[in-house]
Write a protein that binds this DNA or RNA. Structure first.
Lengths: 192, 192
DNA sequence: GCAAAGTATGGTCAAATGACCACGTTTTTC
DNA sequence: GAAAAACGTGGTCATTTGACCATACTTTGC
């Protein structure tokens, strides 16, 4: 599991070998089964998470028991409940594996030490956060302005690697539409 | 206009006087009339903006001509199109005054210099950005999970200082519901 | 490999929503 | 202060959406 992560560090971050070693030494590998929780709402999010393989979903359960998905994260992505992690407050969301997932965790202290000692890592982290901010604004705009069909088409366009791996009801829970509406859209698109 | 901003700096940021002066000296005051554009989609966002009084709205126009509001910003808040500002790419949103507004602008270079020389300002900026991230996630969650009525109630709860100053159609454009639905909700709430 | 769980689709029906239009009132602008 | 623009509400009607349920099929987990 760590060797793939090493590859990511050297290729995507272009980190030299001697900077990779300290990152590995505080890494905590973690295997998750389908539907296993990585973070439970109410707990404090104490780790940064990198996904080696698999998919995680970040979701919350509304008063009437419905699940709403804030985010999917898959291979070579990082995830956490940022608010809970920063402020050390109870998480309001759950993070669970959609499919069997290999992840790597770092404790907050360890990761902060890495950020302080590895400028390249820090720079890269900032970039990732910025990109997330831009993406989230776009997602919000779509959520308030697009029709269900546009939302679905958008999702396919932005997440081609996920469509075949996610059950439809999760896509619906991510888009904020009902499963029924989603299957109707798919049905309609068959004959066009 | 600048004196109110000075007060903000010393009270909210607790900046000592000698750190306030450099911020003021690169500040560009700007008065906006109702509906006047501060940033036009297509242009690059080249300024950080602080609002002394008034309200700005950040919005985009969809293909069919509808306006969708990404954000309202009012007194003592900062605003910009962060993606356009960071990457110096054409903005995809417009920023315009909802009511007559007094704002203060800084050029990116000037503001970056301030951030580099004033650690307190930098720290405060980071905090603001973090808070925005948390808020935006909550807003997204509401957008995909709440009923129109819940969205409206949420809006009132989170923006009590704005409700009386915004026309309903803008609130609708912010919530992603039609004006008709919004007036229906208000009507229903009268008799409860 | 097999039982159990999960998944995709479709039917039906009630309710919610939006598009369009009209009208009386309020606010803005000069 | 008067004309014009903007605003809030309501009516109607077609359409979309969701809730609930059933069924056939596929995937999962041991």
């Amino acid at each position: 599991m760590l060797s793939e992560f090493k590859k990511y560090l050297s290729e995507s971050l272009e980190l030299p070998d001697q900077e990779i070693q300290p990152i590995l030494s505080s890494a905590i590998p973690r295997k998750l089964r389908r539907n296993e929780l990585l973070l439970q709402a109410g707990d404090v999010c104490r780790h940064k998470v990198f996904i080696v393989s698999g998919i995680l979903r970040t979701y919350s359960i509304s008063a009437n028991g419905n699940e709403h998905i804030v985010q999917f994260s898959s291979e070579k992505e990082w995830t956490l409940d940022i608010e809970s992690y920063d402020l050390e407050t109870p998480a309001t969301v759950n993070i669970a594996a959609v499919e069997p997932t290999d992840a790597i965790l770092w404790k907050k202290n360890d990761f902060n030490a890495l950020l302080a000692s590895l400028p390249l890592l820090k720079k890269y982290s900032k970039q990732l956060i910025s990109r997330k901010i831009y993406e989230n604004r776009q997602r919000l705009l779509t959520a308030i302005s697009a029709t269900p069909e546009e939302k679905y088409d958008d999702f396919i366009r932005n997440n081609p690697h996920l469509i075949a791996r996610l059950p439809l009801h999760m896509i619906a829970a991510y888009l904020g539409i009902s499963l029924k509406t989603l299957t109707r859209i798919r049905h309609a698109q068959l004959y066009r």
